[in-house]
């Protein structure tokens, strides 16, 4: 072989050599990384846009409403014509009430599900349950809000007689349901990352599955589990539609769970659906509230980041 192909060989090489000098190809090669970098810069611009927008409009807000009365005020009465009050504490308390109930609902269930999936379930069971949890995570929050308002609240009212139609309890529980998949799947990831030899070591000593889960796997996966809870908390703080539909629009500076409340997110929605004129203190107040909300979630995400970084297990 070889010889008959010899003349042909030159031609293919020539064809290749001819296209090697292709200027368009070279120009593309140089332009592509620049274009892609600009595209990647969009996400940075988004962050700058978010922070810039919030800061600028919040600063304008503080020219109309004193900063101190905003962060210490116990009354949020933006729509009062005579005596508008912009004390954010009631909105923060409303947010924290819902978040608190959501977390105490979601953590036990989410963690149990994670332990079950990671330590007890067979592969087949896992293959069925995990997609179902994913479906739970994929349901739009507007649907959850409707569910809270039309099903969970009436159900709770039969048990708790004094429960108002808008309250903190029902949206809190439903937000909890919404964040269960997040806690379950992130915690399960953390537990599955614990190497099997550690489990086998304990099982070989005669430990039961429960003892392995609680005394060996949980401590080893603790940082991942904590991070999942913090991230889920952040999600609960930022949740909007469930609390808008089922929580009410009554900012309240108290610790009750049965009365109507308002969260930071629900206030932003209330103003957006109303007709507050551009340039009024009410208009700027949604940015001040949005900024506060942003700081809360940023803090949570930062904590989660620190937890995973600091306690990263070295197996």
């Amino acid at each position: 072989m070889g010889n008959p192909a010899a003349p042909k060989r030159a031609t293919v090489r020539q064809m290749i050599a001819k296209s090697a000098g292709n200027k368009r190809k070279r120009a593309a090669e140089r332009a592509v990384p620049v274009v892609l970098f600009l595209i990647a810069a969009v996400s940075v611009l988004t962050t700058i846009g978010i922070v810039g927008t919030l800061v600028a409009e919040t600063v304008t807000f503080f020219t109309k409403v004193p900063f101190w009365s905003f962060i210490t005020g116990r009354e949020w009465l933006p729509f009062s014509n005579k005596d508008a009050q912009f004390g954010i504490l009631p909105l923060i308390i409303g947010t924290l009430k819902v978040t608190f109930i959501a977390v105490i609902t979601a953590v036990p269930i989410g963690l149990s599900a994670a332990i079950y999936l990671s330590e007890y379930a067979s592969d087949n069971t896992r293959r069925i349950i995990k997609p179902v949890l994913e479906v739970l995570a994929g349901i739009p929050t507007i649907v959850y809000g409707f569910f809270a308002l039309t099903f969970v609240t009436p159900l709770l009212q039969t048990v708790i007689p004094g429960l108002k139609i808008f309250n903190a309890l029902s949206p809190g529980i439903v937000v909890g349901i919404m964040i269960i998949p997040m806690i379950a799947s992130l915690s399960e990831d953390a537990m599955s990352a614990v190497p099997n030899p550690i489990r086998e070591g304990a099982l070989a000593l005669g430990a039961t599955r429960f003892e392995v889960a609680v005394k060996v796997v949980l401590p080893a996966a603790l940082s991942g589990i904590l991070a999942s809870v913090v991230l889920a908390t952040s999600r609960a703080i930022g949740e909007t539609m469930i609390v808008s539909l089922a929580g009410g629009a009554t900012p309240a500076f108290n610790l009750g769970f049965t009365d109507s409340i308002q969260t930071m997110t629900a206030y932003i929605v209330q103003v957006s659906t109303g007709d507050a004129g551009y340039g009024t203190p009410i208009y700027y107040s949604i940015y001040a509230v949005g900024f506060t909300l942003f700081l809360f979630t940023l803090l949570m995400n930062w904590i989660a980041h620190r937890i995973t970084k600091r306690f990263r297990e070295a197996y």
Binding site: A41, S43, T46, I50, L54, I268, L293, F294, H305
Partner: peptide, 19 residues
Amino acid sequence: IRMNISNLAGVPSVVFGLL
């Protein structure tokens, strides 16, 4: 850029509305 993207993922959707 990487860190920024993971932070962006945690921003509540209502804040994106304000943007």
